[in-house]
Structure formats: C-alpha cells, structure tokens
Simulated scan of single mutants.
Amino acid sequence: MTVTIKDVAIKANVAPSTVSRVIANNPRISEKTKKRVRKAIQELGYHPNLNARSLANQMTNSVGIVMPESASKSFQNPFFPEVIRGISSYIQSREYSLFMVTGETEEAIYEGVVKMVQGRRVDGIVLLYSRVDDKIIQYLIEKKFPFVLIGKPQQTAQDITYTDNDNYSAGREVTEYLIKLGHTHIAFIGGSPNLMVTKERLSGFREALLMADLQISNDYICHMEFLQEGGKEAVEQLFQLKQPPTAIVVTDDLMALGVLSALSEKGYSIPDDVSVISFNNVILSEISNPPLTSVDVHIFQLGYESAKSLVEKIEAPDLLPKNILVPYTIIERHSCMKQEGR
C-alpha cells in the first residue's frame, strides 16, 4: 500500500501542508517540527512525488548555471568542473537538477538565459562569474528572478546575493609575499579586465606595490584568457621588455602552467631566475614542474555555498540578500624563492 502525505501528517501529528513545507525545507518551520516530520517520513518509507510538488508550486526543481564563455573553453580550466561539482553536491541533496547555459558569444549566452527564464525552465540561476556592466545581471534584477553570483558584483553589492573570496586582500597578500622575498620587478597576469575577479586582484596588487614604494608599470600588467595559451602569450610580451620581471603574479593556475612552459622554453629556471605565484590551487599546481605556490580559494566551497544560497532564495523569496566570503590560503610550494643578493 502506497504511503501518502496524509499518513505522514497523522504520524507526525501535523497538518499535511506542514509536511509539504518540511519537504521543501521552508525556513519558517521550526527545527523541532522538521525533525519529527522527517522521522515519520523515514519510518513510513514515504517518497515525495516531485512531479506533483512541482506542479503544485509551479516549480521545475531545476537550477540553471551560466558559464562565462563557451563550454569548450571553460572546461579546459579545472576551476569550472570543480565549482560545478560543489553546486551539484548541494542541489542533488535537495533533489534539484542542473540546467547549463553556454554560448560562443556574450550575446548567445544572454539569449540562452532569456529563454531559460521566460520558458520557466529553472527556478533560479547561478552565474559562475561577475562581469562589469553585465546585462544578464540587469535582466535578472528587472525580472526579479532568483539568482546568485560567484564573484563580487560591480555595483549594488548589498542588493545581490553572492559568494566570493576577498580577492583584493588576496591580490595584495601574494604581492607582499614576493616583495618580502626581495623582488622589486613584479608583473601581473590576469584575465579580462571586465571580470571583477581580475579587477579586485589587480587592485590588491597595485596597493601592495604602492605601500612598498615600488613603481607600478603598465608594461608589467597583462590581460589574457584563462588558458595555458594566455600564460604563454603574456610571457612573450613581458620578456621582450628591457627589464623583464623577476617575479609574476598569475591569477589562474592554468595560465601559470603556460607561464612555466614558456619560461622554460626561453631557458629561464623557476624559481632561480623567476618566481611565480598563482591562484586556485587545482591539482595541476601540485604536479607542475616545479610545483606551484598557489592561493587555495576553496573552489568546491564557492560552488556549494552559492547553490545553498540560491535554494534558500527560491524557497523563501523574501530573504534579504547576503554575501558569503569563503576564506583563502596561500599554499607554499617550490615556484618562489628569495631573490639573489637580498
């Protein structure tokens, strides 16, 4: 005999509507009541009819994720599979599914988001990036559609729920790390200047140089794609200069692998000739030659926390926006050393 929601309500001594709210993890239901209802569900072996629940609530029980560019490029970078693993880990525990939007151009991605929202294909969206003047964000705000950002918003941060690291402090700290090793000619290799993660880390980089009374040269600042090729192209630019850098801050491990490869091809030894410090601490940073000193930004946690925040917004639309700062840690390996003579 099939166990119904009414059977659970009777056993838990609550109304059927309360059982429904517990299944949806409504924050307005007390933890004591939730425990009692969940115990009844477990003892009776009740399995919620997700299709019926979705129809009743006009929900899809799906979450959309928006990539910053084409999947073919994004998935070359280990950051994105790992952040999606974090998102997936949480939403699967809540019986949601994933819906992905990618495109070869920003316009194509925007159109995909519009179709996803207007077609009610998902209940909310996680943007895996934060970009300057992003019309997707503006569209979602205008439509009052639930979304969460991975990265700091350009404006009105108090009105948008987001998960991020303190990238300004991280950029400053890694630069100070190199300055303490005696380096005075330090370059910065970042992604697109339109990405907030690049802007924040570059601001911290500049602040560290300023506080140390070191010259800030635009020749030492490169903006490339978050790919190995981007790192190689940056090295080509930097090491044609009359005074090449003795240390480099790279804002992504995959780019840093390209940096290591290009420097090696040019006959430079790392860290004897050039020190390199990077971000993300993906598995590649551990197995590179030499192993990279890298900032662990806890990618999985960024994804997990963003998914948790989004589901909360979906199930309790009146919740106020919040921001979650995931801590970072500098993992020292063998790609940096004290400059000779210092």
Results as ranks from 00 to 15, higher is better:
136 I>M: 04
30 S>I: 07
25 N>Q: 12
188 F>T: 02
67 M>V: 08
335 S>N: 13
116 M>H: 02
73 K>E: 13
177 Y>Q: 12
180 K>M: 11
307 A>L: 04
27 P>R: 07
109 I>H: 00
267 G>H: 10
9 A>R: 03
219 D>I: 05
278 S>I: 01
21 R>E: 02
26 N>Y: 01
293 T>Q: 08
91 I>N: 00
75 F>Q: 10
111 E>K: 11
189 I>V: 14
35 K>C: 12
79 F>G: 00
100 M>A: 15
148 V>M: 00
175 T>K: 06
301 Q>W: 06
306 S>E: 08
45 G>C: 15
339 Q>R: 14
235 V>L: 05
298 H>Y: 08
152 K>E: 13
136 I>V: 13
132 V>D: 12
334 H>E: 11
221 I>Q: 11
85 R>E: 12
238 L>S: 01
18 T>A: 14
138 Q>M: 07
271 P>M: 11
292 L>F: 04
51 N>L: 15
152 K>V: 13
64 G>R: 00
230 G>N: 04
337 M>T: 14
259 V>H: 00
139 Y>R: 01
333 R>Y: 04
212 A>I: 03
37 V>Q: 03
138 Q>F: 01
174 V>H: 01
150 I>F: 01
34 K>Q: 09
180 K>E: 14
62 S>L: 11
342 R>Q: 14
209 L>A: 03
154 Q>A: 14
175 T>P: 03
255 M>C: 10
171 G>T: 09
162 Y>A: 07
305 E>D: 15
326 V>F: 07
305 E>R: 13
204 G>C: 06
250 V>M: 09
138 Q>T: 06
105 T>E: 11
236 E>F: 07
56 A>T: 13
198 T>L: 05
165 N>L: 04
50 L>G: 04
121 R>F: 05
35 K>H: 12
201 R>S: 09
179 I>A: 08
74 S>P: 01
335 S>C: 08
289 N>G: 10
205 F>T: 05
75 F>I: 06
114 V>P: 03
289 N>Y: 11
258 G>Q: 01
167 N>L: 07
321 P>I: 02
1 M>I: 10
84 I>Y: 01
215 Q>D: 12
152 K>P: 01
125 I>H: 00
63 V>I: 14
28 R>Q: 11
130 S>D: 02
320 L>R: 10
245 P>N: 09
25 N>F: 05
312 E>W: 04
200 E>I: 03
325 L>Y: 06
92 Q>C: 13
293 T>Y: 03
5 I>G: 05
82 E>N: 15
295 V>F: 04
194 N>S: 14
304 Y>M: 12
239 F>A: 09
7 D>H: 11
258 G>R: 00
186 I>T: 06
206 R>I: 12
306 S>P: 08
189 I>P: 00
315 E>H: 06
88 S>T: 12
101 V>C: 08
70 S>D: 13
90 Y>T: 06
14 V>K: 03
318 D>N: 10
63 V>D: 00
340 E>I: 15
135 K>N: 12
